[in-house]
């Protein structure tokens, strides 16, 4: 059972030495932290490593958290930087041509799926599948905006870019996601939405 205390109250208790309070905070935000990490890592093992590292880093720097922004905004920025460091360590350049090829391959492999099986699969499955075909930055912005319920300003703090840039990036990311859905599902996209 999760705690009914607010994030700030749990942080205060953690800083006072109550580690169980931090466990509650982890339980509360682990799903989103993990989902955001999945947008970069593309496999569960790496995503878990990124998300766990992020929570450990957040614990270490909890005393430096200034309560001017939401805890989630601060936490997601840690997940983002941890994921970027992780990708760099793995020598994966997200903007490289190689990466584009990976996404094109993913795209082709998914388009070869039997479209008739679409009826048996959920909307969420197809959306998640389309998101995994996006570039990590696009996927992260979509995830933060829709699943993390972050405003454009909050996303700009998380990613360290201007809010106006986030707005443009979000628009482009949604366009690309729509295109992926249309490509994957052909005519069934209208039924899906």
């Amino acid at each position: 059972m999760q705690s009914k205390l607010s994030d700030i109250e749990l942080i205060e208790q953690t800083l006072a030495g109550n580690q169980a309070a931090y466990a509650d905070l982890v339980k509360r935000h682990q799903r989103f932290g993990f989902t955001l990490a999945m947008r970069f890592a593309k496999n569960r093992e790496d995503a878990e490593e990124i998300a766990q590292d992020s929570f450990i880093k957040a614990y270490r720097s909890l005393a430096t958290f200034q309560r001017q922004s939401k805890f989630t905004t601060w936490l997601y920025s840690i997940v983002y930087t941890t994921a970027m460091t992780f990708l760099r360590k793995k020598r994966v350049d997200t903007d490289s041509i190689d990466d584009e090829n990976i996404y094109i391959q993913l795209e082709n492999s998914s388009s070869s799926h039997d479209i008739n099986s679409a009826e048996n699969k959920s909307r969420s499955y197809y959306l998640n599948q389309a998101i995994t075909q996006l570039m990590p930055d696009d996927a992260a912005i979509i995830t933060l905006f829709y699943m993390g319920e972050q405003s454009l300003d909050e996303i700009s703090k998380t990613l360290g870019i201007e809010a106006s840039t986030v707005k443009v990036k979000l628009f482009r990311a949604r366009q690309r996601l729509k295109e992926k859905l249309e490509h994957n599902l052909k005519h069934e996209v209208k039924e899906l939405i």
């Binding site: 799903r31 993990f34 909307r123 959306l127 998101i131 899906l192």
Partner: peptide, 13 residues
């Protein structure tokens, strides 16, 4: 489309 995006489910660790 916006409503569909809003209903996306989070991954479970």
């Amino acid at each position: 489309l916006n409503q569909a995006f809003s209903k996306m489910e989070l991954d479970e660790p």
